[in-house]
Design a protein around this nucleic acid. Structure first.
Length: 476
DNA sequence: TTTTGAGTTGTTCGA
DNA sequence: GTCGAACAACTCAAA
């Protein structure tokens, strides 16, 4: 009478409803992770995500071992077959998991549910990942929301998310463990060691997530609404990869924020904080992906399918390498390559540049982010790119095109961010840092910058590119 | 059904 | 240097 507990994007033992239900059901629990990238279709985890996943599974295994259990790891082409096999090997009568919302996986999970139920197992799924399920948030007319502020307003009228569940002290093991691969056998760790930058930046796992949240609340929550826009400052929580892999859940963040703020006599304002609104954007992204499952591939606004993109490998490669000649864009792309993450303000600037200045399809940018971000998440990545391209779920005016120079001057006024990621410009005076092509020859000489040699000339002229994008958008 | 108010994140121009 | 208006009219959500 044991339970198969199928871990997916919920790599934690605290506030894990499927685990809690398995313990309530009684009997032994067999925790399982299936590596089945083929079932994720076009959106199997990219390189940076795989690096993170390996470390996160290792931490989860340790947490289970501390509780008298362990994590069974298998590689799978077909979850139905693998779970049937495991049920047979363990004699399990129950299969529990926490839900995912990617279209391919919703379909896969439905197949699993039907197949294992047909075999006589009790199969149940739970919500570990969201404050509210995508189908629980509905407009007055019963449909999905397409505007964030209305969505988030509605979310805050719903019953408060329940308090997070405590981590169990013990997870009862089966009499005999089924076979498991060593984690290394999944081949998630890159063979060439390109991940040193990731390793020096991040601590995957629930402990690392909890530490990030605590530090953020203590040091940056207060000034978040203003400071969050300055990429040189440690002013954001950096919880996104931890949230993606479910090492921490939004309920824990919600209640920790409430406790923190009400301890400081701000009980009335914490729910409306900009920080929780960002958690709300994550909810909104899942809401949209669930209700508009074609959006990872196709624009939500159909007429954008006719946009005259100019796919071209050369400008795309320059953008990917951080060699566009626009310092704030290049700094962001290099931060991404080095650390697997990019500050959100810079994501918008870099994405706007790719889409509107270089006229590359947003899907090309989404694909690059998918492979290089440790927080790559189909819901959030899709929303972000469609928002920038103007084809997504908000009616932002089409003439909103970021100017990479003024954005740099406004949000990196001392140049600390650009200097950190583009050391070849470090000695250039603040005045020219965000537009080195405007610098007088003597300023370039003094800073040992030779445009076209030590740092690229601008790939396009922004004023021209802006006009070109506006013309193209007008023709839609 | 129709109407109305409102909408994450911008840029440029001219007073 | 700063500020408000124009950009060009779209879509959603609720009344």
């Amino acid at each position: 009478m044991s339970t198969l507990l199928w871990f997916r994007l919920d790599l934690r033992v605290a506030d894990n409803p499927a685990l809690a239900a398995a313990l309530r059901a009684g009997g032994p629990v067999v925790p399982v992770y299936l590596w089945s990238p083929a079932e994720e279709g076009a959106w199997a985890p990219g390189g940076a995500s795989r690096w993170w996943l390996h470390a996160s599974l290792a931490r989860l295994g340790e947490a289970l071992e501390q509780r008298g259990s362990r994590l069974i790891v298998r590689s799978s082409e077909d979850a139905v077959a693998s779970l049937r096999e495991l049920a047979r090997e363990t004699g399990a009568t129950r299969l529990y998991w926490n839900r995912r919302y990617e279209p391919a996986l919703i379909a896969r999970d439905q197949r699993v549910k039907a197949a294992l139920r047909a075999q006589g197992l009790e199969v149940a799924s739970f919500n570990s990942a969201l404050l509210h399920e995508p189908w629980e948030v509905v407009t007055k007319s019963g449909g999905p929301f397409q505007v964030f502020s209305a969505f988030w307003r509605q979310c805050r009228t719903l019953p408060e998310p329940v308090e997070p569940l405590a981590a169990p002290g013990h997870v009862p093991p089966p009499a005999r463990w089924p076979g498991s691969l060593a984690l290394e056998a999944l081949g998630l760790v890159p063979r060439i060691d390109w991940a040193q930058g990731l390793a020096s930046t991040w601590s995957p796992g629930s402990a690392g997530a909890a530490r990030r949240l605590r530090e953020f609340l203590e040091t940056a929550f207060e000034g978040y609404s203003v400071e969050r826009d300055f990429p040189a400052a440690p002013s954001t929580s950096r919880l996104s990869p931890h949230l993606h892999f479910g090492e921490i859940g939004p309920r824990e963040i919600w209640h920790a924020t409430r406790r923190h703020a009400s301890g400081r006599g701000r009980y009335t304002s914490w729910r409306d904080s900009q920080f929780l609104a960002e958690v709300g954007w994550r909810e909104f992204a899942h809401h949209l992906l669930y209700h508009f499952p074609a959006t990872p591939e196709a624009p939500l606004r159909a007429r954008y399918a006719r946009f005259p993109w100019a796919p071209d490998a050369a400008p795309l490669a320059a953008w990917q390498r951080g060699a566009t000649g626009y310092p704030i864009v290049d700094a962001g792309m290099r931060e991404l390559w080095h650390s697997g993450w990019m500050h959100n303000r810079v994501r918008m600037i870099a994405a706007s540049f790719l889409v509107k200045d270089l006229l590359q399809p947003w899907s090309a940018g989404a694909r690059w982010f998918w492979d290089t971000l440790v927080d790559a998440d189909l819901a959030s990545n899709t929303l972000g790119w469609q928002w920038v391209a103007g084809s997504g779920a908000d009616a932002a005016p089409f003439f909103r095109i970021f100017n990479p120079v003024t954005q740099g001057q406004k949000f990196d006024p001392t140049g600390a961010y650009v200097r950190r990621w583009i050391p070849e410009l470090a000695a250039l005076d603040d005045v020219w840092l965000h537009e080195p092509w405007m610098a007088p020859p003597e300023a370039l000489r003094a800073a040992r910058v030779v445009l076209g040699r030590t740092y690229p000339e601008p790939l396009v002229d922004h004023a021209m590119a802006r006009q070109r994008a506006l013309e193209a958008l007008k023709r839609l």
